[in-house]
Every structure is written in C-alpha cells, then in structure tokens.
C-alpha cells in the first residue's frame, strides 16, 4: 500500500483546477490577514505551560491550513479493550449517555467462520467478562476501536443540505453546530455510523480527531490515554513520527468498507477481513 492513494477524481483537469484554486487562495491569503482557520493567538506555548508539545512543529508557528497533513492509525494487535479511549472521549466532549464519538468492539471468530461482535455500552466500561451468550471454540478474538474515518470522498459532507459539516483544508471532517439544522441526513450517509444527533443540542455530532487539541500541538484525547499505543496519531510533515514511519514502510494497512469508495484517512493495522 502506498502512503496515500490518490482519490479517484484526481485526474489532470482536477489537478489543474486544484493548482489554480490553490494559487488564487494563496494570493488572497497574502492580501487578507483574516481569521478562518489561521488564528494563532492562544496557541502559543506560553498559554499552555503544563502541556508539552506532543506533535512537533505546530506551536509558535503560523499554521498553514493548506500545508498540514495528519494521519491516524489504529493498531488492532495492540488494543486490549480497556476502554480508556472511550472514557477519555466521553469526558473531553461531555458526550451524552448512549451516544458515541468513538467506541471499541470485541470480535470473536470461530472455526465455522461465524463472527460474533459485541460492544456493551460502547466499551465505556471496558471488557470485564467474556461473552457468556455464545458457546463456540474461539479461533480468533480481538478488539477493534472505531472512530471517524475522515473520508477523503466524504459522504456526510456531500449530503449536508446547509454546509454545516465540511472537510477542512488540513483534512479533518468537522461540524458547524451553529448552522446544523438537525436533519440527520449525514447520520444516514455515514457508512461507519460515526455520527449521531446530540439529544441536548439537537445537532449532529461526530469525532473530530480532537482538532482543538491537534491545533495546539496535543495528541487526540483517545491517543493520549491509550496505554498500549494501539491508537497512533501524528503529523505527516514530521518524518520522525511513528505514523510517518508506518505509512512509509511496506505496511499491511487497511481501511474500513473500502468498497464504499469513501477513501478513509483512518488506517488499521492488523484488521482481519471480518472487520467492517
């Protein structure tokens, strides 16, 4: 697998269009020093004395939103199903009960190719007990953390009728909860069920790969608390980062539901073919 497969529409015309767009926006940026993704103010190290920079090269520099690239890799072989990530996520965002920005599934495969999956309370309570409702000889069993796939061909942003969800130039699929009308079309369109309608705000909500932390040089909360390194995040501009090395290496990376044509930016290491 290559570091990054080109999305299918990147033909010559699209390329030229992109270059033109880029240069036009680029020159506009030189003229107008405006907000909208370029704000730096509170991202300086002085305002965050207790938190050392975890993603190098972000703090104290102008953040060029068009230049940045990040990667998220989930290593299934290292996940122990402790649910720290789920707990951290719930706490970081005060996610309402019964809804999940991220969750951890448990897979059990037997010798008849039967697959048994469960995910009690989204993995928030960890996995304290083996499954008691099935009696099979286990061939393979593993945990699968799930979160937003940050698709490059994004079905959820495509269908949003009002432009309340979008892909940022640095590759994050975010929500504008001030404009969301709460129609739920994005929830239907997401093949991974990463989205939900927040019962408090009545707007759609989703995992952001902790964009607010990343922009301050911090790792996403779930990555930060993962005790085994099953969740890996880093900048692709940083050649020393673990994700860069994994993506540069020969790799056995896969994505979820590849046939959907969504081109996820979330990669899995060690995912069996039953994982969807």
């Amino acid at each position: 697998m290559k570091i990054e497969q080109a999305p299918p529409q990147l033909n010559r015309r699209a390329f030229i269009k992109k270059v033109l767009k880029g240069s036009v926006t680029g020159s506009l940026l030189l003229i107008y020093p405006m907000g909208g993704g370029d704000a730096l103010d509170m991202l300086q190290p002085s305002t965050m004395p207790d938190m050392p920079e975890q993603i190098p090269g972000i703090r104290g520099k102008a953040y060029n939103i068009h230049e940045r690239k990040f990667a998220f890799i989930v290593d299934i072989t290292r996940c122990i199903g402790c649910g720290s990530c789920c707990v951290a996520d719930k706490r970081e965002y005060n996610v309402p009960d019964g809804y999940y920005r991220t969750w951890v599934e448990r897979y059990i495969k037997d010798f008849d190719d039967q697959v048994y999956v469960d995910c009690p309370n989204g993995g928030l309570d960890g996995y304290q007990k083996p499954r008691e409702d099935i009696d099979v000889q286990v061939r393979d069993t593993f945990f699968v953390p799930k979160l937003c796939n940050m698709c490059k061909e994004t079905p959820c942003t495509q269908v949003c009728p009002v432009g309340a969800t979008f892909t940022t130039p640095d590759g994050f699929v975010l929500m504008d909860s001030d404009r969301c009308v709460g129609c739920g079309y994005c929830i239907q369109a997401c093949p991974y069920s990463s989205r939900f309608l927040n019962p408090v705000t009545h707007t759609a909500e989703k995992c952001t790969w902790c964009y607010h932390r990343v922009r301050k040089g911090l790792l996403p909360a779930c990555v930060e608390v993962c005790p085994t390194g099953a969740r890996k995040f880093g900048s692709l501009k940083d050649e020393t980062s673990e994700v860069y090395k994994i993506l540069k290496g020969p790799g056995v990376l896969t994505v979820l539901k590849e046939a959907m044509g969504t081109w996820p930016a979330l990669y899995y290491l060690g995912a069996r073919l039953e994982v969807i």
Partner: peptide
Amino acid sequence: YGHYRANAIDEEVQRPIRHGT
C-alpha cells in the same frame, strides 16, 4: 475554503481542552 463557514474551524480550535498530559 468551501461550502461552509470557515470561522467554524476557528471555533472548533477554541473548544476548551479537558484532558492534559
């Protein structure tokens, strides 16, 4: 940047950090 409110990016950046290191 596209069919959305670019300031929403800044607003997301301003979200308070709850987990330290």
